[in-house]
Design a binder for these strands. Structure first.
Lengths: 215, 215
DNA sequence: AAGAGGCCGTGCAAATTTTCACAAGAATTA
DNA sequence: TAATTCTTGTGAAAATTTGCACGGCCTCTT
C-alpha cells in the first residue's frame, strides 16, 4: 500500500484536511461518539461531505455503507497515514517569546511531537536550562547536536533576518523538514519540506475581508 | 474602484499571495532595490511570475512594460488593497505562554496591528498589567471593553476547550473577524471571517512528507 | 528616428480541485 | 425474504486555479 501511495500524487490540501479531520475526530472520541457519518463530520469541519469521502478514498476504504465511520478506528487510520504512529523529534532555533511559548506548548507532546534540542545565538542564553528541561545550545553546535539527538524536524522562531541562516544550518545537518515562523520565504534545495506559519499573513486576510465587507 | 471590487470574487489564495509579495517587497525596499521584474520577484517568493501579474491584475495595472514594478510603489499599493493603510485594533483572549508571546511580538505593530485589550478567566491574572502595558480584563467584561475600545479583530489563544466560548463572546460583541490559534474548527455565523493558525496541522504535513519520502 | 530587447497585461488552454449524483452495500423492518 | 432506509465509494461534470505564449508598450542604442 505505502509503495503504491508513494508514487500517486496526493494534493497537499488533502493532507491538511486529514489533519483537520483528526482534530474533529479527537473531539468526537472525547465526547464518546462511536460512529459518525461523513455528513455530520463535514458539518463539524465546515467541509463538503463528498470531499471527506474523496480525501479518504486516496488511502483506502474506511467506512461502512449505510452506517458511517467508527470514530476511533478512522482517527487511528488517519494518524497512521499522516505518520503519527511515532514520536517526531524537533529542534528549535530562536529562544525569544515565541520560541519559549512553543517549547512550553503542551499540544505538541500530545500529538506526538517533541523538542529534543533548542538553540540560540545569545551568549546570555546559551548554557541555561529551560523550565521544560532542555539546555540552550549555541547555534554553532547545531550540526553536532542535531545529529547526536536524531532531530527530524527543524523549527525556526528567530527574527526574519536570522531565519535563512538557521535554515542553512538545518539543511547542512541533514534535516529534511522545517517549520518556519519567520515572515520570510526560505530558500531551500529540492526535496526539503518547508511549512510556513505566518500570523501576519492571516491577519492581512482578515484586514482585507473587513475592508471589503464595509458598507 | 472599491465598489467594483466588492462584487467581483477574488480568490482567497490571491489575497494570501499578495501578503507574501508584500513581505518580499519590504525586504527588497530594505535592500534599497528600486525596481523589480515579476520574474525576479517570483523567484524570491517561489511563485510563477504569470501568477504574480495575474494576481495584481485583479486590482489594476501597477507595472511598466519593459521595465518592471517600482518596489516602494507596488508595496504601498498592495498594502492599500489589503487595507493596511490604517491601524487595526485587536483583542486577545487567553494569556498563556502563547498569548504573552503574541502580545510581545513586535512584528504586529510594525505591520499595523495593535492589541488594545487582553482577557483571561484566571482570577489570579485579571487586574494585572502586562509588560506591554495592557491590563488583563476578565472575559466577562469582553463585550463592554471591546465596544469601548473599538476592537475590530478578535484573537483566540485559549485552550481548545475554551475557544468556542471566546468566539461566542466576540461574535456577541460585534467583532467580525477572528484569528484562532486553538486547534478546533470554530462555529460562527455567516459573514464572520475566521482564520486558523494551527501549528500541529503544519507539523502533520511535515510528518506526512517525511513518512512518504522514506526509502 | 528606427530598430532591438525587455517585460507587463491578458486571452486561452491545461491542470487541478471541488461538487454532484447515483450504484452498491449494510442494517432494519415487515 | 423482500422491501425500505441509510450512507459509503466513485465516475463524471462543474468550477476553480494555474501556466503558457504573445501582443503591446517602454527604454535604450545606434
Amino acid at each position: 500500500m505505502r509503495s503504491i501511495m508513494k508514487f500517486s500524487k496526493i494534493p497537499a490540501v488533502t493532507i491538511t484536511r486529514l489533519s483537520i479531520y483528526s482534530r474533529c475526530l479527537e473531539a468526537l472520541a472525547q465526547e464518546d461518539v462511536k460512529i459518525i457519518a461523513s455528513d455530520k463530520l463535514a458539518q463539524k469541519c465546515g467541509i463538503n461531505p463528498a470531499q471527506i469521502r474523496k480525501d479518504l478514498a486516496y488511502f483506502g476504504e474506511f467506512g461502512i455503507r449505510g452506517v458511517g465511520y467508527f470514530v476511533k478506528e478512522l482517527l487511528s487510520e488517519i494518524q497512521r497515514i499522516l505518520g503519527l504512529n511515532k514520536t517526531w523529534k524537533m529542534a528549535l532555533v530562536g529562544i525569544g517569546n515565541l520560541g519559549l511559548a512553543l517549547v512550553a506548548h503542551e499540544n505538541f507532546v500530545r500529538q506526538g511531537y517533541e523538542f529534543v534540542a533548542v538553540f540560540d545565538v545569545d551568549p546570555a542564553k546559551v548554557g541555561r536550562r529551560l523550565p521544560s528541561g532542555q539546555i540552550i545550545h549555541h547555534v554553532d553546535d547545531l550540526d553536532k547536536v542535531v545529529k547526536e539527538k536524531g532531530v527530524e524536524i527543524g523549527v525556526i522562531a528567530t527574527p526574519a533576518g536570522k531565519a535563512q541562516n538557521a535554515a542553512h544550518r538545518f539543511i547542512g545537518s541533514g534535516v529534511k523538514a522545517i517549520l518556519n515562523f519567520a515572515p520570510i520565504q526560505l530558500q531551500v534545495p529540492e526535496g526539503m519540506a518547508v511549512e510556513n506559519v505566518d500570523f501576519t499573513v492571516k491577519l492581512d486576510n482578515l484586514a482585507y475581508h473587513l475592508t471589503m465587507a464595509e458598507p
